[in-house]
Design a protein around this nucleic acid. Structure first.
Lengths: 203, 203
DNA sequence: CACAAAGTAAAGCGATCGCTATACTTGAGT
DNA sequence: ACTCAAGTATAGCGATCGCTTTACTTTGTG
């Protein structure tokens, strides 16, 4: 045709645009941060046009919310470790302890993506902040429930303390770029869990 | 004169520009985040011209490093709580426990500014990341030293565990927008400290 | 009183930000 | 086959980013 075109070698990604966009956000937002990642970078990695991105997500803020939801539901994503609490093949006690397994070096780099989002959101992006708050409160609730299932003496207290330890391990490991805090947290967690369960068994 | 000028009503801040700039960074970077704060906002709050800012600090990244140094040396800034470890009027044991006093609501909002900077720095700004790493390692060392001064049984272990607890309390409190994690962390810290000191007294 | 240091105002650099608009192409389902 | 949603490419919007530049003014001190 006369309408040019030796063009059209690219073709981009094809149909599943939404999925590729979400995959790209998980890769980029978690690794580089939200403010540091422009939407152009997202479209580039997702092999998607700008228009398509904005047809699926009305704004970057909406994209951030979708990113958080994906993080939560993706069992292979950066938040994967938290899913051990739901593994039926482990005893409740072992689930609690498995949470403190030191992550691989590269997964360590950026700590908890939910907390990081809350930090980056600061005042702006209240929806994201609310999402993170709900997620963390559910994590605490899951820890308490698992502590109870493990037969702990004071499950609420144990669950809350384990939550603090877990958050602390991730945060400190990130700041000092060292997995050591996970070992320290796990050692203390094991002691707390044994004491709580042992106290009941012997009481 | 023909050179206009009914101007010059403003005059800005006057001499101590560097000081005002640093004060502004502490206020803005800590509250809103680094990426979210443009240099124009800093100059506005500091009542300083753009030129002056860049005469004192060659780049925004240099400004971030100076901000971290100021945080560390300012006993009234957002990192103030960590200075309790150096208070000579308190017993070592009480210094360790005072660390876990719940902060005021408004100070809670954004967690630890050092950790936040590490998160925002991500890959970029390696100088800032190194600064944070050093700061946190010194915090751990101070905790260990204070634990030793308190007569703890295994001061290294106690110091490391308290560091994890402290980081966890700040991080989790920020994410769920609630000071409760500080209470949980303090309760556990008190137990750990009493056990470590009691073990020695009775052993 | 002169002078250097420290400051000011304001225009503008190129780049990137989040986002929109116009126009065209593809591909799966009926 | 036809249709139409889903996709493409690309130019550009106004705003802001970090940063530079030019030209001028204040202020403390020798």
């Amino acid at each position: 045709m006369a309408t040019t075109t030796e063009a059209a070698p690219t073709k981009r990604g094809g149909r599943g645009a939404r999925e590729r966009i979400l995959k790209a956000t998980v890769e980029l937002f978690a690794r580089d941060g939200i403010h540091a990642t422009g939407v152009a970078k997202v479209t580039e990695v997702a092999q998607v046009s700008t228009r398509t991105l904005y047809q699926h997500f009305p704004s970057k803020e909406a994209l951030v919310s979708a990113y958080l939801a994906r993080l939560e539901s993706d069992p292979n994503g950066p938040a994967e470790i938290e899913t051990v609490l739901t593994r039926a093949d482990l005893e409740p006690r072992d689930r609690l302890i498995a949470l403190f397994a030191a992550p691989a070096e590269e997964a360590l780099v950026r700590g908890c993506p939910f907390h990081n989002t809350a930090v980056e959101a600061a005042g702006a992006m209240p929806e994201a902040a609310a999402f993170v708050e709900r997620h963390k409160r559910e994590l605490i609730a899951n820890l308490i429930a698992t502590a109870e299932a493990a037969g702990a003496d004071h499950p609420e207290r144990l669950g809350r303390q384990l939550a603090v330890l877990f958050e602390g391990a991730r945060a400190l490991a990130t700041s000092i770029n060292d997995t050591r805090p996970f070992e320290d947290a796990r050692d203390l967690a094991v002691t707390l869990i044994n004491d709580a369960i042992g106290a009941r068994a012997s009481g």
